[in-house]
């Protein structure tokens, strides 16, 4: 259930205009402060250094059909979320550019997820885009919350193969 865009309406399947020798990082974000922290960390840590390219990824977790009274309600929800997400991605892209990343090395992607496995989707993008590192913000959940609803960062740490996972505190 992928719908990839570059945030300007164009559908794309390619990574950024990266030099083949670039280290390519995938930052998975949502609307949380935790994600913002992850973006700011990468901006501060790597901004201005050559040899890095970034893809900002946001997966919109679409509720199951049971949560909508009609197809119209679902469509309106999706439209609203897509707009919010595109705006967020665009803002975070600007932060990275202002920190010193060249414009052509910061790409944004959004897609819809049925949320059976968000971590699985993130790792699938990681493979498709040939990223060496996945970056996420650590959600500060209580133990009981993590027990009931799981933790993306924990799942990534356990499931990721052939890449590094940065979990930003």
């Amino acid at each position: 259930m992928f719908a990839l865009t570059d945030g300007k309406g164009a559908v794309t399947n390619n990574g950024p205009n990266a030099d083949a020798r670039d280290k390519h990082l995938l930052i998975a974000i949502d609307h949380s402060e935790d994600s913002k922290r992850a973006v700011l960390y990468v901006a501060e840590f790597l901004g201005g250094f050559p040899g890095f390219s970034i893809t900002l990824l946001s997966i919109i977790q679409v509720p199951e059909e049971d949560f909508f009274e009609s197809g119209e309600e679902r469509a309106a929800w999706l439209k609203n979320k897509s707009e919010e997400t595109d705006l967020l991605l665009s803002n975070y892209r600007q932060i990275l550019i202002q920190s010193g990343f060249p414009e052509d090395k910061v790409l944004i992607k959004s897609c819809l997820g049925d949320a059976d496995s968000l971590s699985g989707m993130i790792l699938s993008f990681k493979c498709d885009l040939n990223c060496c590192t996945v970056v996420v913000g650590r959600q500060h959940k209580s133990k009981s919350e993590e027990f009931l609803f799981g933790s993306i960062s924990n799942q990534l740490i356990h499931e990721a193969k052939n890449c590094a996972v940065w979990v930003i505190e």
Binding site: Q61, P63, E64, D66, F67, A115, D116, S117, L118, S119, F147, L148, F149, G150, S151, I152, Q155
Partner: peptide, 15 residues
């Protein structure tokens, strides 16, 4: 009933 799950779809059922 359905609940809006997050990272773990069946966590609440398991609980």
């Amino acid at each position: 009933y359905n609940y809006r799950h997050r990272a773990s779809k069946f966590g609440y059922d398991l609980f």
